[in-house]
Amino acid sequence: MTCVADSAAEARIDQALVARALLGNDRRAFEQLVRRHQGMVRAQLCRLLHGDAAAADDLAQETFLLAWRKLDQFRSEARFSTWLYRIAYACFLQMCRTKSWAARNAQDDDAMEELPMPAPAMDLRMDLTRAMQHLSTGEQTVLLHCVQLGLSHEEAAYVLSMPLGTVKTHATRGKAKLKTWLSAWQNAAGEEHVQ
């Protein structure tokens, strides 16, 4: 209940800042919006770019500059943070269309395919990260937005421009795969512990 109230209060603050930025062309209000949201937008992009923080910062900067230019198109139907995630994801997709990054990413994916599945002796967190990378791109993206960034399925569908049913399917399948892999990990770890 408190969480919902906090979220509503945050949304109201964002709306007030957007109104100030629009009406008076107030750069300070926009700066506050940047400071409030840069952390999560950069975290989102860093995850999407498999930890490439420099590229994530470049894209995040592009995201905020686009948001400034298109601020008059922001409708309060979605939260401001959700609107920013949507712009950031669109910038990410645009970047994926450029050959250099796509080629580099494909090499990384090939290397990841060659890695063995989570080994029992390894740390659970590392195993989870590796297991995540074995999911399909859609499943990874949906789990990032729905679980890690805390968006609802509807918000994730808006951010990713994906049908709601597809988002739910990706989330269910992704979790089912992780459950299977992590159950195997748990069993193996249990057996090691007994020995």
């Binding site: 952390g39 999560m40 950069r42 975290a43 989870l128 990260t129 995540m132 789990l143 992780l178």
Partner: peptide
């Protein structure tokens, strides 16, 4: 587990 593995907001 997924939330734990997420580093959270990046510092400014």
């Amino acid at each position: 587990l997924l939330r734990q593995s997420f580093d959270g907001p990046a510092p400014d």
